[in-house]
């Protein structure tokens, strides 16, 4: 549904997106995950035909970016990073306007459908200026969908929202999967990507990794175990000499052992520590979150670049 081939964009000397090649399948939610400045927004803007790529090619819904811009714009719905509205006009008027620009056959009915679906129908005649940030974001989702696009670009849909609004928005995005829409979701929020996405593309100017969330975690498998000691001594960290331990460090009362698979290795680790004379108060597993994977991917990129 979306395909890019060595998609690249420069701003002057600065490379914003470098040789991005990926494919988003129909009905899939693909997360574009990366820190600020990673090139997520630039990627979306190129795919929505708002910015021209410096080089490379891309196709959205079978149309080539750059050649069939108007066909792409009609196929695509976009929730921009900071989605603004005409604040003096009503919710309904705002939605109707965009539906109309997209050539929806009955803008009024479409506006109504999405106002209802996002729980905004009661507020339809209010000026947008009176909406809270969370409700405004819901309206932005309604706008992105009002012309029934097959492809959706959601650029940081929960950024800056309070936790409750963010959860509402995530729940709504989750519901979209049942509609066979193809979604490209930009986020720097890992749990969000993990929760919503079928696959995650880790981006930092270049594509660093692309896989299912579980596979990404597995790839970087190996957990961390935190051992709280009654008698912290440096040799507990330096003298472990166990094959599965990649790194051990002592900080205060806590010994952090990296590389251990808690299920398999904890008994051995505990036995060894006891042999060494450690007084163990507690052992906690600190499993790798996707965040660790992500951070280590980012770190590796630093080392490489």
């Amino acid at each position: 549904m979306i395909r890019t081939e060595a998609l690249t964009r420069r701003f002057g000397d600065r490379l914003a997106v470098d040789g991005l090649t990926l494919e988003v399948r129909e009905g899939e939610i693909l997360g574009l995950l990366g820190p600020n400045g990673a090139g997520k927004t630039t990627t979306v803007r190129m795919l929505a035909c708002l910015l021209a790529p410096t080089s490379g090619r891309a196709w959205v819904g079978g149309h080539e970016v750059g050649r069939e811009a108007s066909a792409i714009r009609s196929t695509v719905g976009i929730l921009t990073e900071s989605p603004g509205f005409y604040k003096r006009l009503s919710l309904e008027r705002n939605l109707r306007y965009f539906a109309d620009l997209y050539g929806v056959s009955s803008p009024r009915a479409a506006a109504r459908r999405y106002l209802e679906r996002l729980g905004l129908w009661d507020r339809r005649t209010d000026a947008v200026a009176t909406l809270s940030k969370g409700l405004r974001q819901r309206l932005a989702l309604a706008r992105a969908l009002v012309h029934e696009p097959k492809v959706l670009f959601l650029d940081e849909p929960t950024a800056g929202l309070d936790p409750e609004s963010a959860r509402d928005v995530r729940r709504f995005i989750g519901e979209l999967t049942s509609e066979r829409r193809t979604v490209l979701l930009c986020t720097h929020n890992l749990p969000e990507a993990e929760e919503l996405c079928d696959r995650i593309a880790v981006l930092r100017t270049r594509l660093i990794a692309l896989d299912r969330p579980a596979a990404l975690k597995e790839r970087m498998s190996g957990g961390r175990v935190l051992v709280e000691l009654g008698n912290p001594r440096p040799e507990f960290a330096t003298g472990l000499h166990l094959p599965f331990v990649q790194r051990a460090s002592l900080e205060g009362n806590t010994l952090t052992v990296e590389g251990a698979n808690p299920d398999r290795d904890n008994p051995t680790l505990v036995r060894r520590l006891v042999e060494m004379g450690a007084e163990i108060r507690s052992v906690t597993r600190d499993e790798r979150t996707l965040e660790d994977v992500y951070l280590s991917l980012m770190g590796r990129d630093d080392a490489a670049g």
Partner: peptide, 14 residues
């Protein structure tokens, strides 16, 4: 001011 340019540019308007 209202941040509506990008949503507007995303529509099929030429």
């Amino acid at each position: 001011e209202q941040g509506t340019l990008e949503p507007l540019l995303a529509t099929p308007l030429t």
